[in-house]
Simulated assay, not measured.
Amino acid sequence: MTAPDKPRLSIRIDLPGGGRFGPGKAALLDAIADLGSINKAAAQLGMSYPRAKKLVEAMNRDFGVPLVISAQGGADGGGSRLTDAADEIRGIYRELCNRTLAHNKELLRTFSKPDKRN
């Protein structure tokens, strides 16, 4: 992972029951939605398939509803798709991030140029 050229804000949600949802899991859901496969999503994100599968299982458990549904290979070739619940969570997470960034843009900028009066 390369360092950002300017300060960035990322949000992690600590869920009831101890689970977490943040930029990594959001990116995994986005990649699964785009590619239709946990395996392809994992490869695109530079993670192993077992790690991606474990994250999907954790999200399904943490939210109490399936976010990703997978079908085994066969005539249709298998694959994975997001549920409506996953699309809703992705939208809410994206909106939370956008609103937080918009509201705190000026404060975030101060991390680029800390006050040097000390």
Rank of each mutant, 00 (worst) to 15 (best):
Ala58His: 04
Arg61His: 14
Val68Ala: 09
Gly79Asn: 07
Arg109Lys: 14
Gly24Pro: 00
Thr83Cys: 10
Gln44Ile: 03
Thr100Ser: 15
Tyr49Pro: 00
Gly91Arg: 12
Asp30Leu: 13
Ile89Cys: 06
Ala75Phe: 14
Phe63Trp: 12
Ile69Phe: 05
Lys53Gly: 04
Gly77Leu: 08
Asn104Leu: 12
Val68His: 02
Met47Glu: 06
Leu55Gly: 00
Gly79Trp: 05
Ile89His: 01
Phe63Cys: 05
Gly22Ser: 12
Asp87Asn: 15
Lys40Ala: 15
Gly77Asp: 04
Gly64Asp: 10
Lys53Gln: 15
Ala58Arg: 09
Ile32Arg: 01
Arg81Thr: 14
Leu35Lys: 10
Asp87Phe: 12
Phe63Thr: 02
Gly73Phe: 08
Lys40Val: 04
Tyr93Val: 06
Gln44Trp: 04
Arg109Pro: 02
Lys105Gln: 12
Asp30Tyr: 07
Ala75Asn: 12
Ala42Cys: 13
Leu28Arg: 00
Gly77Cys: 08
Leu101Ser: 04
Ile32Asp: 01
Asp87Ser: 09
Pro50Gln: 12
Asp62Gln: 11
Ala71Leu: 11
Ser48Asn: 07
Leu107Met: 11
Ala85Tyr: 05
Arg51Pro: 02
Gly24Tyr: 10
Leu82Ile: 06
Val68Thr: 03
Asn39Phe: 08
Thr83Lys: 08
Ser70Leu: 05
Arg109Phe: 10
Met59Gly: 01
Val68Glu: 01
Asp30Ser: 14
Ala75Met: 12
Ser70Gly: 14
Arg51Gln: 13
Leu108Pro: 00
Phe21Lys: 01
Leu55Thr: 02
Ala26Ser: 11
Arg20Pro: 02
Ala86Met: 07
Leu82Lys: 05
Ala58Cys: 06
Thr100Arg: 06
Asp62Tyr: 10
Leu101Arg: 03
Gln44Thr: 09
Ala52Cys: 03
Ile32Pro: 00
Lys105Trp: 04
Gly73Arg: 14
Glu106Ser: 13
Lys40Arg: 15
Ala86Gly: 05
Ala26Leu: 13
Ala58Met: 09
Arg109Ile: 06
Thr100Gly: 07
Asn60Asp: 15
Gly79His: 04
Gly74His: 09
Gly24Asn: 15
Gln44His: 08
Pro50Thr: 12
Gly78Lys: 05
Ala26Arg: 00
Asp76Ile: 07
Lys54Ser: 15
Lys25Gln: 14
Gly36Glu: 03
Ser37Val: 03
Ala71Phe: 12
Phe21Asn: 00
Ala42Asp: 01
Arg20Ala: 14
Tyr93Glu: 01
Tyr93Ala: 11
Gly46Cys: 13
Leu29Pro: 00
